[in-house]
Amino acid sequence: MGCSLSSDSSNQVTVLLARWNQGEAAAREALVPLVYEELRRVARKCLAAQHHDHTLQSTALVHEAYLRLVGRDSVHWQSRVHFFAVAARLMRGILVDHARKRSAAKRGGGAVTLVLDEEVTLPKKNELNLVALDHALTCLAGLDSRQSQIVELRFFGGLSIEDVAHVLGISPATVKREWATARLWLHNAMGESAAI
């Protein structure tokens, strides 16, 4: 995990994208770790710099990772969409992990449960809604995995309706319909998980 990306892995990504685009499934598998590492790196950098006043913009991160790995003009549109499709799944994992990790309290000596400063009490960790979304999406996948995937691509990957249609090989109209009903379902499901 160096600070800058070697041109090797950048080339590698371009090649893999091209191969995947030609229908080679193994190329997708090979892409995952490269994209994942880059996404994490970009996300970490973003957090460290406290960009956007602590707002992590997932699609912006995916774009940044894409530019770093693939470059601006070297690959055509279809490859870009494929890249984003991979990135969406990974981004979901990264964001949810991030939310979870920060709220995972530790037991035992490492935990800061006693603080001298009477003024300071520890902020409540409140990033639960993202985790609730993840949970709801997993439930939705149990009912309709394609629909869950559509949400993932749209929400975590920032893909447009048309891009999602392309990735999944279905019509934009279908994506639109599925998206609309998925939103309602998730909204309800998350309401449930948030209710006490």
């Binding site: 957090l47 602590h54 707002t55 992590l56 913009q57 997932s58 699609t59 912006a60 964001l95 991030h98 960790k125 409140n126 990033e127 809604n129 993202l130 609730a132 979304l133 929400f155 975590f156 920032g158 998730l186 909204h187 998350m190 309401g191 948030a194």
Partner: peptide, 13 residues
């Protein structure tokens, strides 16, 4: 665009 506040996501309720 999938904006995440690091600490919160828009309330779904």
């Amino acid at each position: 665009p999938g904006n995440f506040e690091l600490t919160t996501v828009e309330s779904p309720i």
